[in-house]
């Protein structure tokens, strides 16, 4: 069941498009903001709202990489793996995360605090290597800065 807030936000999103299903991506992202990921149940809720079938919506949901169809932790760290960050040493960030939190890319810490995901160029190449945690972008991330950054995300 969609919550009242979700429903209101979805209704608002639908206004921007000439047909309801045009808001599919907005709707997925909106609900994901509230629920962290899109479970099968969430998918059905949204599909119903948009008058689509689960197949219709999941075909879209599984295409885009920012729609999570599997559970994620309380925080998601996106480590840019594209070329400028690669040159500037994004692997070290990843190794560091692995060392300190015992998770590889694509995994979630056991306490559910953090999920690390790969991401294509974050568009902060001039400050490579870059990473994004939830909605915050960090540039020139040296391995030794990671703990300080991570302290903000409990």
């Amino acid at each position: 069941m969609l919550s009242d807030i979700e429903r209101r936000e979805l209704e608002e999103a639908v206004q921007h498009y000439s047909e309801k299903r045009g808001a599919a991506i907005d709707a997925l992202l909106t609900v994901q903001r509230h629920r962290r990921w899109i479970s099968d149940e969430s998918l059905l809720d949204i599909a119903q709202f948009l008058e689509m079938t689960a197949e219709d919506l999941d075909s879209i949901a599984t295409f885009y990489n920012l729609v999570f169809r599997k559970p994620v932790g309380r925080h998601v760290a996106f480590v840019c793996d594209s070329i400028s960050c690669w040159i500037m040493g994004c692997e070290q960030i990843r190794e560091q995360l692995k060392k300190h939190y015992d998770i590889d890319v694509g995994q979630t810490t056991r306490d559910g605090r953090l999920t690390v995901l790969p991401i294509a160029c974050l568009g902060h190449c001039e400050r490579a290597p870059a990473m994004m945690i939830d909605q915050d972008v960090y540039g020139e991330v040296a391995p030794d800065k990671i703990d300080i950054i991570m302290n903000k995300y409990k």
Partner: peptide, 19 residues
């Protein structure tokens, strides 16, 4: 029909039902 679709992207495509 509506209960068959394509899921995923790039070379990881799946043609089938939601379940």
């Amino acid at each position: 029909g509506r209960d068959l679709n394509v899921f995923g992207a790039h070379d990881a495509l799946y043609f089938g039902r939601e379940q």
